[in-house]
């Protein structure tokens, strides 16, 4: 190849790289003081539904979870309460610091995964069905014990690599529509995608009751919905990418009050 040809190729290459860098660079993180929960974008009626325990459909799962907490299960014949006692004390603030890096696995596990670990390892019972009623009920019951508490995921030597990995996924363009999470949730939050206002993607309310789903759902379900909307291949259920994204989102929402079980349109 001629020298000119090589120079032209090198230029193309650099132009290509510059293109990639400016995609990532485009996303401007939302300043801490300007953050707001998806709750803020809801109608007064939907907010009232979340605020009133008697009207919040998520409370049905919380009540189921309370019963499951007491139920002995598995070959160990233990209930959650046998190990953890009264959840109102022992689980206070726990959901606010999840996903957490498990010292044994050396990777972040989210609340649902942590509950499954207790179930299979401590109770020695078969895993609950992902996104099934019982797992959601236990997660909702545990998360409820942190309601109103500030999200407490911190960046330290253990979490830093996973927070970065989550941020990288969040800022990466994906799918046939070639969009990143940041394109919508950082750069265009508050604007309307078709009729729906785009929230800032703070995971304050999960698991939450979505009127559109007519049921309670986990944060992983929400992320999967957004990926499908981008026409990207969703990660396999339980894939590490979800825990990394969840960890990044919780860190991004640090200090914001927990709302679980939330309600969303």
């Amino acid at each position: 190849m001629s020298r000119q040809g090589l120079v032209a190729l090198a230029c193309l290459w650099i132009a290509g790289l510059a293109g990639l860098v400016s995609w990532g660079g485009q996303a401007a993180e939302i300043p801490l003081q300007d953050r707001q929960s998806g709750y803020q974008l809801m109608t007064p009626e939907t907010r009232a539904m979340q605020d009133d325990d008697a009207a919040n459909p998520g409370m049905l799962w919380v009540l189921d979870g309370e019963a499951l907490w007491q139920r002995k299960d598995g070959r160990a014949n233990l209930s959650c309460a046998d190990c953890h006692g009264d959840a109102r004390q022992s689980m206070k603030g726990v959901a606010a610091r999840y996903p957490a890096v498990d010292p044994g696995l050396q990777k972040p596990v989210d609340l649902e995964q942590r509950i499954e670990m207790c179930r299979t390892e401590k109770q020695q019972a078969p895993p609950l069905r992902a996104e099934g009623k019982d797992l959601l009920a236990l997660a909702a019951y545990v998360a409820r014990q942190s309601k109103g508490m500030p999200i407490a995921v911190v960046e330290d030597d253990h979490t830093r690599p996973f927070i970065s990995a989550g941020r990288e996924i969040y800022e990466r363009r994906q799918g046939q529509l070639n969009l990143s999470c940041a394109n919508c949730h950082d750069d265009n939050s508050g604007k309307r995608l078709a009729g729906s206002p785009i929230p800032q993607a703070h995971p304050t309310g999960y698991p939450l009751y979505r009127l559109e789903w007519q049921t309670l759902g986990s944060l992983q379900r929400r992320l999967r919905n957004c990926l499908v909307g981008m026409r990207a291949e969703p990660y396999a259920p339980g894939a590490p990418e979800y825990a990394e994204l969840e960890l990044y989102l919780m860190w991004r929402a640090r200090g914001m009050p927990m709302e679980a079980p939330g309600v969303r349109p």
Binding site: D187, V228, A232
Partner: peptide, 24 residues
């Protein structure tokens, strides 16, 4: 280069396109 408008007639340079839309 920074646009959020999707490329309607490009199939290269896209990441993790879902199986049902891949290559189209």
């Amino acid at each position: 280069p920074d646009t959020i408008m999707p490329p309607y007639y490009r199939t290269d340079g896209l990441e993790r396109v879902s199986k049902s839309f891949a290559g189209k």
